[in-house]
């Protein structure tokens, strides 16, 4: 049985994010699902199912409540996850607001404790790009070229950012080139989400 557990989604009391290991389902809006889960989606007990990088977001329909439907949803989800190939996704444009959300989340994080930490060490960090669940940042000052950069990024920035944007895949860092050198992508600072 695929491990999963539900987590609340801030601001959306009818939705639970069912966290599943990455790589089982493709990201997107779910059109049909196998078994009882598909039945619930079809009959409106479940209003919407969306798969993101962190798990399966399941929103209940207007007359349904989680205490009553939860056990059924859980059982149905477990069964449906055994057949990942039977899920179909709605043909979808990439969620247009995802990049905006990532951008805002990243700006918030860099303005917050993680950024303060870097600034307190005499460095500076700017957000360069937020696209496709990957945030690219640039380090300047004392932090550029510092061997602790990799650890700093993973421990602080990625964690804080993932709290605000759970579908985060990676945080990449570019260091400003020293005079005479080209900008390089510090490959060691690229981290995939845990599989």
């Amino acid at each position: 049985m695929i491990p999963t557990h539900p987590e609340a989604v801030a601001g959306q009391p009818d939705t639970l994010r069912w966290v599943i290991p990455a790589g089982i389902l493709t990201v997107g809006e779910v059109r049909t699902a196998p078994g009882d889960l598909g039945v619930m989606l079809g009959t409106g007990v479940v209003r919407r199912i969306r798969v993101d990088r962190a798990g399966v977001l399941i929103a209940l329909g207007p007359d349904a409540l989680w205490p009553a439907q939860g056990a059924r949803v859980r059982a149905a989800l477990h069964a449906a996850l055994e057949q990942p190939g039977a899920w179909t996704l709605a043909v979808c444009a990439p969620d247009p607001s995802a990049d905006d959300r990532l951008y805002e989340a990243a700006e918030t994080v860099l303005a917050g404790a993680a950024g303060d930490f870097i600034r307190s060490h005499g460095g500076a960090i700017d957000l360069i790009l937020a696209r496709d669940d990957v945030a690219t940042v640039r380090l300047r000052g004392a932090c550029a070229g510092c061997p602790a950069v990799g650890f700093t990024l993973q421990a602080r920035v990625e964690r804080d950012l993932r709290l605000l944007y759970p579908e985060l895949r990676a945080v990449r860092a570019i260091a400003l080139p020293r005079p005479g050198k080209r900008a390089t992508l510090t490959g060691v600072a690229a981290f995939e989400t845990a599989t």
Binding site: M1, I2, P3, T4, H5, P6, A8, P13, L16, W66, P67, G70, A71, R74, A75, H78
Partner: peptide, 15 residues
């Protein structure tokens, strides 16, 4: 929001 499963394979998966 939701009770954890009370036993069996579902609880192991939850854990």
């Amino acid at each position: 929001v939701l009770d954890a499963p009370c036993g069996g394979a579902e609880q192991s998966a939850w854990v």
